[in-house]
């Protein structure tokens, strides 16, 4: 027994050390990004892996107040506005659609809608942007917030999560309301909506995180940097606006840190939602 527990303990220690290394590998790039945004280029060249900046050099944060002729606050506003608007529309539209498809999958036309949605999910999301560019062009929505927001509000993963939730509602709940003579509208408003509030919050949160990340559709549909969001501005800095390393790290930090904070506060909900959407029945 004794030798076994010694062996168990050394295995446990090994597991600890290994997972500490893995955790470091996943957190270090974020730390490096933040530290680098406060260090001058010269200091970086001398000592690339210093864990703390030698002094808080905030030059880069001043320099990126205007980028490519556009103020940083406009990129930030675009990010918040486009993300919130697209996610609100996505949650509303997808929740209603998922509910209708869950309740009456066999109504005339519903199968077609489901099929169309499935195809949209299968089409390589990045490449869908190419024909969407043509559609947005034909609709005359190139270079408008409306064009960007409409495309971003089509969010397949939210649909999977919502359908998964609706399936978990006990059938008896709806059946008994029907027996009591409730109309479908009443069932929806008085029974389904109230119990859906937590899932709607989760789905909104995940939609927010996913839309905040978006860049290609915005880059393609926007016609000028005035409509760019933070990630798109960051990417244009990566290519067009030269290679000011420190400034790039500063903008990357501004794009990422709010999301990290939001995620840390809501991790249970977010991870639970992702899992529910992925493990579909």
């Amino acid at each position: 027994m004794k030798t076994r527990s010694v062996k168990d303990r050394s295995v446990a220690l090994l597991a600890w050390v290994f997972m500490a290394g893995v955790t470091f590998l996943f957190l270090y790039p974020f730390w490096w990004m933040i530290v680098s945004s406060f260090r001058s280029q010269e200091a970086m060249l001398l000592e690339p892996t210093r864990l703390l900046p030698e002094s808080f050099n905030t030059r880069a944060y001043g320099d990126i107040q205007t980028l490519g002729g556009v103020k940083l606050w406009l990129y930030t506003f675009n990010s918040v506005f486009i993300t919130v608007a697209a996610t609100l529309i996505a949650v509303g539209v997808t929740a209603l659609g998922a509910y209708a498809l869950y309740r009456k999958p066999d109504l005339p036309g519903f199968r077609f809608i489901q099929f169309g949605f499935l195809m949209t999910m299968m089409y390589p999301a990045m490449l869908l942007v190419i024909p969407v560019y043509l559609v947005v062009f034909q609709l005359g929505l190139l270079g408008t917030y409306a064009g960007i927001i409409l495309f971003l509000s089509l969010m397949p993963i939210l649909f999977l999560m919502l359908v998964q939730f609706f399936r978990s509602i006990p059938k008896e709940l709806i059946e008994s309301a029907k027996m009591d003579g409730a109309s479908e509208m009443q069932i929806f408003r008085k029974i389904v909506l109230p119990i859906s509030k937590p899932i709607l919050a989760t789905v909104f949160l995940i939609g927010f995180l996913l839309n905040w990340k978006q860049w290609l559709p915005i880059l393609v549909i926007a016609t000028s940097p005035d409509q760019y969001t933070l990630p798109v501005a960051l990417l244009s800095m990566n290519t067009e606006l030269g290679i000011d390393f420190q400034a790039t790290m500063a903008l990357a930090a501004i794009t990422t840190v709010p999301i990290i904070v939001l995620f840390l506060f809501t991790q249970r909900r977010v991870i639970g939602g992702f899992v529910a959407g992925a493990v579909k029945g």
Partner: peptide
């Protein structure tokens, strides 16, 4: 830590 890259912007 493992899940953090899934939610943070890939551009960054």
């Amino acid at each position: 830590a493992l899940f953090l890259p899934v939610v943070t912007p890939e551009a960054a």
